[in-house]
Amino acid sequence: MRTLSYAQAIHEAHAQLLDRDPRVFVIGQGLWNPWYAGTTLKDLDKAFGCDRILDSPVSENATTGAAIGAAIAGMRPILFHPRMDFMLLAIDPIVNQAANWSYLFSAQVSVPLVIRSVINRGGEQGAQHSQALHAMLAHIPGLKVVMPSTAYDAKGLLIAAMEDNNPVIYIDDRWLYETTSDVPEDCYAIPIGKGIVRREGRDITIASISYMAEEAMKAGLSLEKQGIDVEVIDLRSAKPLDIDIILKSVKKTGRLVVADGGWKMFGFAAEVAASVSERAFHDLKGPILRVCLPDIPAPTSRALEERYYPRASDIEKTVKKSLNIVSVA
């Protein structure tokens, strides 16, 4: 099979979706000269025309509202917010409108909209350019939230998001763009709400998502060398949450660490921990531990960033803490 990068896989999914369905169009900022999109949208305007790849004015709210209107009118838009932070300028159309529409109108009309947004952290970008807001969005009843961590999932989940008849938030992470995996050439969908066991192990479960799934795999490899057998689950969707896959794993290992690139308080990891303790309290040999961002905005300087973003080594330390292994450093 071919190997593609995460960025190439996103690109291919767009191209195939545009190719197979004339109702599909992409709208957002910088689409004709993608600045924040890396290569994920490169030259799509040339391949599919500027009337299907719409580079918008700096109007997040209008762009989002318009995409919703077009979706209700029978189109299948992919709305692109190159910075998740600035998607907040369109929170009303997303939360009040798109998320509620089906419910408000007794399922007569839904909003078949893919809202793609990018987490763009690190590199001195700071508090207003690096936010991971998936937990906030997953909190909203009418939204689904997917967060691929591999090239294979990046393609399959974008296609699944398009095939869903309700609004789906698709979040990709710039830190993953150069990672590679095997990616089939056909237009395949990965079920939304299904996690995957990335690595089997007996001693402890790490439930993770997005770039923290990558970091969890690195931690797993390092811990293996130290004689610790880690099971790594990549949840792939924040919502719906694949709780069964975690319960099954925890039944075996009895220990759980949740690794998430969002803030700790009221976050995704908190939801996972609560759901597991509600259902599998008696399988647990110890408390569920979390590896998340500290509950402060992202810093800009390198010295601070290094301490802000959790990495594989932080997961490792937390695993050892859960197993009561006293580490030297």
């Binding site: 500290p294 509950d295 402060i296 010295a303």
Partner: peptide, 21 residues
Amino acid sequence: DDPLQMFDSLFETLPKDLLEQ
């Protein structure tokens, strides 16, 4: 800068949970 500084500009007084972090 001192990395701990990232905790020190958020609130006038840091709440207990952030003091712990």
